[in-house]
Design a binder for these strands. Structure first.
Length: 248
DNA sequence: GAAAATGTTATCAT
DNA sequence: TATGATAACATTTT
């Protein structure tokens, strides 16, 4: 479920329930005020990166799927206890499993910087470059996972973008030439939309060039796997065609 | 059946 | 206090 494009798909599916009125709410091990939801109209759905935002009349629910979260509409998963179940007065229902849920008070715009979301129409690549310049010592494989810079980018997108732009994941941000950094920033958005298109068509995995791969599709060299950076997430890369800019 | 993985956050140390 | 490392959580796939 996790990365930004998957949240876009969730948003679109769940949007069909907007306009309905909440009938019942059930939570399991989630600290939210269910009282505030009863009888409330489900107004709209938005997203910020990996955050799915369900707007009700007086409150907004923030759903984060983490690694394993999922949701279903009208069909609860047999034998599973949802973190959150909502039924509407017309009989339809919405279920969230294994996710983190919070309420947000106040306006969303006061909480979220939409220009940091790589899939948002307000995405601002200039701001992203500016933030990267603030952390020259970070490895690019860590910086790409920074949700304050690249909201919505996850580990798959990270690996694919670095492969596509031919930049080695172990580069320090400050060592990457401006033109290449710009290419990374731009491709984070471009690849996210490709991810979305391929995910919708159920052909995402077959388009992976580096992530989980053994052999480089460009030159046949081995793809190396390393738990790199302070985040220790899997990096898949080709030492031959992804450049190091460390001056050596 | 063990292990790893599209991720974040709470808690424990330093 | 503030920062950083580690643990915890949870489910599907390999």
């Amino acid at each position: 479920m996790p990365e930004g494009p998957s949240i876009i798909i969730a948003k679109e599916e769940i949007r069909q329930l907007t306009g309905l009125t909440v009938a019942t709410v059930n939570v399991n091990a989630v600290a939210i005020d269910t009282e505030a939801l009863y009888s409330m109209p489900f107004m709209s759905v938005r997203s910020w990166g990996k955050h799915l935002l369900l707007k009700f009349n007086k409150t907004t629910l923030r759903v984060h799927f983490l690694m394993f979260g999922s949701y279903t509409i009208n069909h609860p998963k047999p034998g599973r206890i949802a973190k959150l179940s909502i039924t509407f007065t017309d009989g339809q229902s919405l279920y969230f499993y294994a996710c983190a849920i919070r309420t947000i008070k106040g306006s969303l715009t006061s909480v979220y910087d939409w220009s940091a979301d790589v899939m948002n129409k307000h995405w601002d690549h200039v701001k992203a470059i500016g933030k990267l310049k603030q952390q020259k010592e970070s490895l690019i494989c860590d910086a790409l996972l920074d949700q304050e810079i690249f909201s919505g980018v996850g580990n798959i997108i990270k690996n694919e973008v670095l492969f596509r732009t031919r930049v080695h994941p172990l580069n320090k941000v400050g060592n990457i030439p401006p033109r290449r950094l710009r290419a990374i920033v731009d491709d984070a958005r471009v690849y996210s939309f490709l991810f979305l298109k391929w995910k919708r068509a159920y052909v995402l995995k077959k388009h992976w060039e580096a992530h989980t791969k053994k052999k480089c599709p460009r030159d046949g060299h081995p793809i190396r796997k390393l738990y790199a950076g302070v985040r220790k997430r899997r990096s898949f890369f080709c030492d031959e065609c992804q450049e190091m800019f460390d001056g050596t």
